[in-house]
Structure formats: C-alpha cells, structure tokens
Design a protein around this nucleic acid. Structure first.
Lengths: 242, 242
DNA sequence: GTCTATAGCTTGATAGAC
DNA sequence: GTCTATCAAGCTATAGAC
C-alpha cells in the first residue's frame, strides 16, 4: 500500500546481504541491471509511482531477485541514490580543494568557488550519459519532496555543502550565515530544477531552449548564482528583514 | 496500479458533474473538504503516494464521493491544482500591471519587475494559512516532476510567465531571449524549492534558518534573482557558449 | 447526494524447489 | 542465485439501494 510515513530503509528480513559481497560476475551484473532500471523508473515516476515488478521487468530479471539483493523497495531506492552520490561528492570536494589551493593571488573569489562547485556536476551531466541523466532527475525530485526528501538530501550531500559554505564564508568574511544558507538554498533549487528536464522551458520558449541542454546551464548558472550570492551576502543593511 | 504514462485527466465516466454546479451548501462543503484533504496529502506524498481512500478518510466522507465529484483520481488532482492557480495568476498579473504603469520615472527596472512578480506569491505564502502552504509544496513537486510536470506547470502558469518575460525584455532591451528564459528557469527552481519546505535548510544551518520562514525568502529571493538576471542577461560576450 | 457492497486487479513480500 | 507459486492486503472504480 501507499505508505504515508516513509522512514529510512528497513533492514532486509533475510540479513544475508547488506553490504556488497557479490559472488559471481553474473550476480554482480544482475544487481547492476536492477539498479539501472530502478534509477530510470524512479526518476521518471517517483518512488511511489513505480512498482518493484516494473523495475525487474525492465531489468529482465525475476521479481524475487530485487528483494533478494535489496530487501525492500526502499532499500533498492537507497542503493540507487547512494551509488552515484559517492562519485559526485568526491569530484566536488576535490574540485573545491583544487581551486582554493591554487586561486590566483591566493585570494579565492565567490565566482571561482561557485564555478569549482558547479563545474564537475554540470560536466558530468553533459557527458555522463543516460544513467547520470536519470540520476540527476531523481535528485531533483527528492530535493523537492517534503518529509523524507530533506532528510535524504542532507544524509547524502550535506558534507560537501558545508565545505562549500565554508569556502564562501572565507571569500566573504562579512557575510552573515543566514544569508549564506539561504543563498545556497536558492542555488540548490535552481540547479536541481535544471536537472529535472521536465520540458517546461522548451514549451515556454517556443523551442528556443531545451531542457536537456547542459551546456546552456553551465554557461549561465554559475554566473547567475554568484551574482545572487553577492547581492544577498554583501548588500548589508539593505535587507528589509532578517 | 501505478501508471507509467500519466496523461491528462480522463473524462469522468458518469458525465453528470464536470464543471461546478453544486446544489446544496452541504454538497459544496463536501466537495471542498475533499479538495482540502487532497491538497494536503498530495503535497506531502505526491500523486502516487496517496490513495483516494486516504483522502476521503481524512476528509471524513465516503470514498465513492470522490469519484462522484471528480470522476477519477487524476480529476481530483487537477481540481486541486487549478483551484488556487487561478487566484495566484490573477494576483500576479495585477501586480505586474500595477508596477509597470506606475514605475518611478516611467522606467521599470529589473528589480522592480521581479519584486512585483514575487511579492504577491511570497505574501500569500506568509499569510495565507495552511491550505496555501500545502498548495505551494505541491507546486514544488509538480515543477520537478518529469514527463507530466512540465506540461502541467505550462498549462496553468505559462501566461503569467510570458507576461513577466515581456516586462523584463522591455527593461533590458539588449537581453537575448535564451538568457531571459534560462534565468527564469533558475528563478523558478529557487522559488519552488523554497516552497517545498523539506526541512533541509534547517538541518544544514543547524537550526539557524527555517524552511517555513516565508519572510526570510521574501527578504532575499527578489534580490538574489534580480542580480542573477542582470548578470546573465546584461553581461554579453562573456558567456562561454550559447 | 450519500452510502453499501463488490468487482477485478495489482501490490510488496516470502517460502521453498532447484 | 534464480525461479515458481502464493499470500494477505490494498487499490480504483462502479452499480445500485436509499
């Protein structure tokens, strides 16, 4: 049934497999096929909009295997979400570190930091292929899902974001923390809606812009958000309220 | 079952009630109670995450009544979405018109237009009560839903957005249309993630900021996005690619 | 308009043979 | 590891009494 209170994944009843000790190569491939199919279908229809049967059917394997490998439907979802989050986080941390330690004149700028944060993501989006495409669309949905969306995003991504905020704080020493956090919230919303690829901008622009155009986002979003950060975090006293 | 291809609402089989001719006051109240409950539950769990039974149970009415009034589950969803969209659009159009016809010196600015566009929404969010709260969270989810989300947002909101773009085009005559549309896409993502109230910024900021703080958004989002528009739409030649 | 009753299916999950 | 078979529970939607 549709469950209103969607907690974290329950432990698989048969506790045989929690980590990742796949025996044969055939088994590992089966596991990956389920993850790939789940990624695509969860991204397209959301957690509740897909059945385990649809996923295994798309993967070309038996229903029971999904439960064998992942325990519950939610366990499968979490596995999908985690798989690429790890890669993404490593890339972004490395990029920020690299920029900070080699900033021109030893003085990192807001523009430089945000570019360093966004570029790896947008380049993966542009060049990563359909798997990444689906994954980013999934992140967009989770980011906008009340109740468990915020908790899930925090669990997987907050360390990198804290790293980003710290870097920006150093570049804008007079900025207030509330302003930094809210500005990041705006950046996050803008970025993930771009990921969602809903086709809305295609309609709105009469075909001039395309939802799938990662290069267009890369060319504009860093500039847009860096200017936003400066306007909010450096324009003290002008804010109407806290 | 969970339906992968979610088209527009099907005509109710019993074509008795499509428009809005509610006879008794009692009947009208029943209808509204179903809409209210649907609004809240759809917002919290998405279209597929809620059952018609849960909605009618929350509304304190019989299951069959939901089908009597709205035909299908999707018909109910669309009715929920439409109800407040109409109000919202009227307010925003009026606000932009009002600003344009009374701009200081007859010269509307980017900041003024965006403020005029955002203020009504954010003020309704701040003061509208829980029904509006749920509604905005629902919009956030739909906006980030691939496949039918873009189509739905376009259907209900595009006329107002075209009005906004036209006003901005006049204020920045040298801006390219692609830049205007993409900038609006970023604004839309930032705005709707703020609506989503996922609690993520609460966690991220260690309690310093609250997802529910409409005043904080009102104080920052117009400034953030106006600066973004200027940076993208007025900084010609500096863009890496189209 | 409202409710009872039910048709007809699909769901997540598991047990157990191979 | 993989598959067959199955369960209890829940689903949307409708027909028909009141």
């Amino acid at each position: 049934m549709a469950n209103l209170t969607l907690g974290p994944a329950k432990e698989p009843r048969s506790s045989r497999r929690l980590g990742r000790p796949p025996k044969s190569e055939r088994a590992e491939e089966t596991r990956e096929r389920i993850l790939d199919a789940g990624e695509e279908l969860f991204a397209r229809n959301g957690f509740h909009g897909v059945t385990v049967r649809q996923i295994t059917r798309a993967a070309g394997v038996d229903v029971a295997l999904a439960h064998y490998y992942f325990g519950t439907k939610r366990g499968l979802f979490d596995a999908v979400f985690l798989r690429r989050a790890e890669i993404l986080n490593k890339e972004r941390l490395a990029s920020i570190d690299r920029y900070e330690s080699s900033a021109p004149g030893g003085q990192p700028t807001v523009e430089g930091i945000i570019e360093a944060f966004l570029a790896p993501v947008l380049e993966i989006w542009a060049r990563g292929g359909p798997g990444w495409d689906h994954y980013f669309a999934l992140v967009a949905q989770v980011n906008n899902t009340p109740e468990w969306g915020g908790e899930t995003m925090a669990r997987y991504f907050d360390p990198v974001i804290q790293r980003l905020i710290a870097a920006l704080r150093k570049a804008m020493p007079s900025a207030r923390d509330e302003d930094l956090y809210w500005s990041y919230q705006f950046l996050s919303g803008a970025l993930t809606l771009a990921f969602a690829q809903t086709g809305r901008i295609d309609r709105l622009s009469g075909g001039l812009c395309r939802s799938t155009d990662a290069a267009a986002v890369l060319a504009r979003l860093p500039r847009f958000t860096a200017a936003g950060f400066r306007a909010v975090c450096e324009g003290r006293g002008l804010l109407k309220s806290a």
